[in-house]
Design a protein around this nucleic acid. Structure first.
Length: 603
RNA sequence: GGGGCCGUAGUUAAGUCGGUUAUAACGCUGGCCUGUCAAGCCAGAGGGCGCGGGUUCGAGUCCCGUCGGCCCCGCCA
């Protein structure tokens, strides 16, 4: 069938907007053929655009148009003119927004046809993600994905509007920046004009937004792409988007309060929800102590209890030795899980081991008493004390971790999430926010044998802890805060160091020598010396926020063109090799091992 | 760098202890059909099992390698 030009037709409304109020009206629609139901006589076409679906009816009474409609196939692009009418009684379709009406078509123009589809475009699709990503333009037509990207747009607009209304200026920062030694691996871009030199794509605009504060803009924001060349996960892409903000003359509380307002606005405009603020707060110490992790899911109990003192003098060597060596013994009480099978316990043990535990001690509280490999090592008094501390009753399962605090907490924190999911006590609905504050400023990196910044090297220490920087640096807390939503970190920030002497001191604590600090961050140190205001800010992970708001398992579903776990784009087939001429221009020589050709890589 | 799961028509899957011509559903093509909306009925086309090698009389099934996808550990200030 011949394809036709638009020929001056103008769309009068979207398909999904047609409703009973249009009854009798002549309308013009444009969209894709979702499905054809051809009765030989009547032909029904579901016409789809981004706003929804409306049913078109072609009657044999209009033979020319009817014959054309017979040729329509899935995803053909058409324009129609017709009259809106109420459906005959009993034929309404309540599952369609437009289901009370239909369009009797008087004119049909075939704007374009479509090759047969590699997969059916339906929301409850079961197609491999690889295939969906290869044909992303088709996948994007699915209403489910369209809704997610529409919501993303609403959220971005809400953020822009809120921040602009509160005096934040949207200012762009460079994408070609300077590589810095701390943090994630940089994506590098070779410089043609300075052979042998490289730009780095920004891991975040951190330094530039601080410079903007020094530049006197007072309040800045940007919805900005960031790049980190690290291994991917369901919630990590090599390029991702932050809602990034920074403000001058503020303290922690000021940033947190105004950002609670931002989150409120996003959920109000995005989902119509009124969130209660202020959000609850936990210190890092509390979060890790009670939930084992610094991104606690506080929607359910199963909290960690410290039993170190209870078991310090017990006869169980593993517990007593751990306590004696400065480790901790902690446990969670899984209510009603004494029935767990051998396999379930093996699963839990495997999880514990994967997070660094040497094993997993467990106790089933049966009507006959303690059923456990470790029961014989514990006196009745210690057993009673443990049960008391854990508020344990018959039918419960106790899980123990005895190790260095970092490992014991992580292991039980992960087990807590796993058991919580097994028990079905993690709510599927709702949005639970919590701030985590007072992070440690420094951590000791065993591999590099030096202190590293927990947040980043520009985070200010808490005033009352500055004195401890030299004597006990690991106990210094930072003016940092993370926002956690349903157990996922969705944002984090801090008050920054605004004095060059303090910044130099921190660099030296991090093992960054004066010379290196000058070569890497000289511009920042210089800038700090010219009247830097106290300032701080935050960055939210827009992709993660969207994943949670839309109930997506992966942030890939909230990004129009995401990459696979190997950071490849299945549609464009990036990354790819380039011409030798391009390499010559930027003075790059590819070594053999990495020089597999396309043919080799495709096998 | 490591662990786990997975690659069979366009799609989603089945395929037993290795054994004639590799199944099904959906989709697709053609025909019939005037109230369907996962339309219905009838007929048909379509793959040699991701790729390479090996074992075997014989491999989708077993072995080795490799490519790709997903989840996770490490990593991600």
């Amino acid at each position: 069938m011949a394809r036709e030009p638009l020929g001056g037709l103008k769309r009068t409304c979207y398909c999904g907007e047609v409703n009973a109020a249009h009854t009798g009206a002549a309308i013009t629609l444009m969209g894709w053929v979702q499905r054809r139901r051809d009765h030989g006589g009547l032909i029904f076409i579901d016409l789809r655009d981004r706003e929804g679906i409306v049913q078109l009816v072609f009657s044999p009474d209009a033979p020319t148009v009817h014959d054309k409609a017979h040729e329509l196939r899935s995803e053909y692009v058409i324009a129609v003119r017709g009259t809106v009418r109420k459906r005959p009684p009993g034929t309404e379709n309540p599952s369609l927004k437009t289901g009370l009406v239909e369009v009797a078509v008087s004119e049909l123009r075939l704007l374009n046809d479509s090759a047969p589809l590699p997969f059916v475009l339906e929301d409850d699709t079961d197609v491999a993600e690889m295939t969906r990503l290869k044909y992303r333009y088709l996948d994007l037509r699915r209403p489910a994905l369209q809704k997610k990207l529409l919501l993303r747009h609403k959220v971005a607009m809400a953020a822009r509007n809120y921040l602009a209304e509160n005096g934040f200026l949207e200012i762009e920062t460079p994408v070609l920046t300077k590589s810095t030694p701390e943090g994630a691996r940089d994506f590098l871009v070779p410089s043609r004009l300075t052979p042998g030199s490289f730009y780095a794509l920004p891991q975040s605009p951190q330094l530039f937004k601080q410079i903007l504060m020094i530049g006197g803009f007072d309040r800045y924001f940007q919805i900005v792409r960031c790049f980190r060349d690290e291994d991917l996960r369901a919630d990590r892409q090599p390029e991702f988007t932050q809602i990034d903000a920074e403000m001058s003359f503020v303290e922690r509380e000021d940033v947190m309060v105004i950002m609670e307002g931002l989150i409120r606005r996003i959920f109000k405009e995005g989902l119509g929800l009124d969130l209660a603020t202020p959000f609850p707060r936990l210190t890092y110490k509390e979060a890790v102590g009670r939930f084992g992790v610094d991104n606690p899911d506080v929607r359910f109990g199963l909290e960690l209890k410290d039993l170190t003192e209870t078991v310090r003098s017990s006869g169980f060597k593993v517990f007593a030795d751990t306590a004696a060596k400065g480790g901790v013994v902690k446990a969670i009480c899984a209510k009603g899980c004494a029935e767990f099978s051998r396999k379930e316990l093996d699963d839990l043990t495997a999880i514990a081991v994967s997070f660094g535990a040497k094993g997993l001690a467990w106790v089933k509280l049966t009507p006959e008493g303690w059923h456990s490999p470790i029961a014989k090592f514990l006196s009745d008094g210690v057993k009673a004390a443990i049960a008391g501390a854990l508020d344990a009753a018959t039918g419960d399962l106790l899980l123990f971790a005895a190790d260095r605090p970092a490992i014991a907490n992580t292991v039980l924190g992960r087990l807590r999430l796993n058991v919580g999911n097994r028990l079905g006590i993690v709510p599927k609905e709702g949005f639970n926010f919590v701030w985590v504050t007072e992070f440690p400023m420094l951590d000791y990196d065993e591999t590099e044998k030096r202190c590293v910044a927990v947040h980043h090297p520009f985070t200010a220490p808490m005033d009352e802890d500055i004195g401890k920087l030299d004597a006990e640096p690991l106990s210094v807390r930072a003016k940092a805060y993370d926002l956690v939503l349903n157990g996922s970190e969705i944002g984090g920030g801090s008050i920054r160091i605004h004095r060059s002497d303090v910044q130099s001191r921190i660099f030296s604590k991090l093992g960054i020598g004066e010379e290196e600090a000058r070569s890497r961050f000289g511009f920042l140190l210089d800038a700090l010396s010219y009247g830097t205001p106290p300032h701080g800010g935050i960055a939210f992970g827009l992709d993660r926020i969207m994943a949670i708001m839309t109930g997506s398992d992966s942030i890939r579903d909230t990004i129009a063109f995401p990459k696979t776990q190997k950071a490849a784009d299945m549609m464009s087939e990036a990354p790819s090799t380039v011409d030798q001429k391009q390499l010559d221009e930027i003075s790059i020589r590819v070594v053999k091992k990495a020089a597999k050709t396309e043919e080799e890589r495709k096998g």
